[in-house]
Amino acid sequence: MSTLEIKDLHVSIETEQGTKDILKGVSLTINSGEIHAIMGPNGSGKSTLASTIAGHPRYEVTNGEILLDGEDVLEMGPDERAQAGLFLAMQYPVEVPGVSMTNFLRTAKTAIDGEAPKLRTWAKEVREAMEKLRIDADFANRNVNEGFSGGEKKRVEILQLELFKPKFAVLDETDSGLDIDALRVVSEGVNRAHDDNDMGTLLITHYTRILNYIKPDYVHVFVDGKVAEQGGPDLADELEANGYDRFLAAAAA
């Protein structure tokens, strides 16, 4: 059983207009096997939280801490965080020209496990995982995310989630841009990783639609760089009915 703790996290970025504070004191604790949904309006800082957990160098933590089983995550580089068991499914996965998926997946798996996967079983594992996510076999020969549609990129993020078997995954709007079939396929992948590896999940979303497929234990409403309210799955239903107005008004006041 592992724990990911985020304590009073403040994050800012440098812009041409000066320093901009984005996260203003975020606290969250996620245990293995739990699914936490973070819902909030655009621009509230959800992706900033996700990128900060993954260690994107653009984001400066000015206060607070992130601990993985008591270890200081903020001291680690992005690669070390992944090796320690964190995974970020990005809202906008990056295309890396000239690097084949096959090479990329093997290199990443080797880095995360600290040893190269066995050739024969690895190839089979990749193939099967791709089949389950309905990813065409020839994607293995293509360059990382290059020319993939939005939906294909999201599936490939979940493919990595299944292959790398992280302790905790942050899914940043994995549902956006997916049609209903793709949403189902992707959700099944997340649920498999959750069931098979007892993965803890931070599911960032703008819409409640994905919560029909991935059932959260907790729902956090995120407004203006903070958690404005938390509750159980019912909170998502209330958001579905009433939107974020109540929270936005409170934040503005």
Binding site: G55, R58, M90, V96, F104, T107, A108
Partner: peptide, 25 residues
């Protein structure tokens, strides 16, 4: 930087990520 970050966020150390990005390019 975004290429580098993507690869590193998958556990790949910076020097190897750099090599992959330059050669890939």
């Amino acid at each position: 930087d975004n290429h580098l970050f993507y690869l590193m966020s998958r556990g790949i150390p910076e020097d190897i990520a750099r090599q992959l990005v330059v050669r890939g390019f």
